Simulated scan of single mutants.
Amino acid sequence: MRTHTIPSDFALSSYDYALPQELIATHPTHPRCDGRLLVYHRTSGRIEHRHFRDFCEVVPRDYTLVCNDTKVLKARLYASKEGGEARSKNLREILFHKACGKSRFFVQIRGRAQSGALFRIYDHAKSPTRFCMRVLEVLESGLRVVEFSSRDSQSIESSAPLEIDEVYALLDLCGHTPLPPYIKREDTPSDSRDYQSVFARNAGAIAAPTASLHFSQKDFSRIKSLYEVCFVTLHVGAGTFVSVQTHDIRAHTMHTESYALSSQARDVIARDSKLLCIGTTAARVVEHFWRVGESEGVCDLFLHPGNAPKRTNALLTNFHLPKSTLLMLVSAFIGREEMRRIYECAITHRYRFFSYGDAMLIF
């Protein structure tokens, strides 16, 4: 019996590559403009090796920049299970995802946590706080539906569940910067600044739109004086780090993330202007809006070589994980073979990879 052959553009194995561990950036470049910038010219296939300080020298003035202004929550919490031994060394890690109701939220909890389990939230000094979390439901995906409460008395049962603004305040008070899973270290106070874009405004992301991290406040002020800039919002979720598991990438079920466009962004996209998307998240919003015409909602757009961009002219992005949808998105812009050539070049030239790493400009 003849087995079905998956075309190379859609075979998951085509998007794997070997990366030396030392090229994974665990800390950002300071100052931000000192980061390296690989420039790829689509018409000629030429590659330039620059630094991010050369951005305005490289990008023509007739491009409009589209930026994602989502703000990263301090989404990682630590807690002890009520009824157990409440010691700091026994703390459980909780990753907040998003709201799923007025006072209900999706979270991940490291280790077992059945429906009804109660957790006491700890602060940065690893001391217990008055905040608690109750597990309401365990989903097949592994996520838990929970509610948070403030325990002013000894009984958590009598306290009203917190709503989203109150939970965001809890995260800001007790939470930690949700560094990506491949950064094997504790977060530090500087990460709360470094893992946030200078134009972050709308809270809701649990991962940064990392191409945005290359701009300092000074650099971005200069850019706004030289280019038209507009903003979209896409709240980046944990799905951005999930590798595709299906052998044929077209069978992959894309994760969903909420988005919204400003009126200026809608007007810019609608007119005949050259768009440079700052990051894959901005590109996905632009391309989703171009296809469906809705100014806000849920984005599940999966760009790959079989679903190429229709409106975006240029892209600033980082270097992405093997077998990730982001790597496939880059291939949608420049083709799989060129993507592989560029990544081989980046590894040879010792570029720094992933969220705190160097950047690539495609135009």
Rank of each mutant, 00 (worst) to 15 (best):
L173R: 13
I121S: 02
R271N: 08
T253Q: 12
R53K: 10
A314V: 00
F119R: 01
T70C: 03
Y122G: 04
K310W: 02
L37A: 04
F241R: 07
A75R: 04
P128E: 08
H27Q: 15
I94W: 08
H320V: 10
S216C: 10
H214L: 08
K310L: 15
Y259Q: 07
L261S: 06
I269H: 00
H349Q: 14
V59C: 04
K126D: 14
L170G: 02
I269K: 02
V292F: 06
T240F: 11
S192Y: 03
R104V: 10
R120C: 10
T348R: 14
S150F: 06
T348E: 15
S158V: 13
P31V: 10
V167C: 02
A332Y: 06
C100I: 13
H349K: 12
F119W: 05
K323W: 03
C345K: 09
L19A: 02
S216K: 04
Q154T: 14
Y259G: 11
S127A: 14
H320Q: 08
M133N: 07
F302C: 07
L65A: 08
H304A: 05
K98W: 03
D69L: 03
R350L: 00
Y17V: 08
P181H: 14
D191G: 10
P189T: 11
R336E: 05
I24T: 07
A99S: 15
G111S: 14
K274V: 02
A208Y: 06
R250K: 10
T188P: 00
I342R: 02
E257M: 10
F363T: 04
H349I: 05
R250I: 11
S243P: 06
L361T: 06
S355N: 12
L315M: 12
V107G: 07
H247F: 01
T3D: 13
F215I: 03
R340H: 12
C33F: 08
Y15Q: 01
E163F: 09
L95Y: 12
T233H: 04
G293T: 13
N68R: 07
L65F: 10
I6A: 03
G297L: 13
S155Y: 07
D300G: 15
I164M: 05
L23R: 02
V167Q: 04
L118A: 09
E257A: 11
T325D: 00
R42M: 06
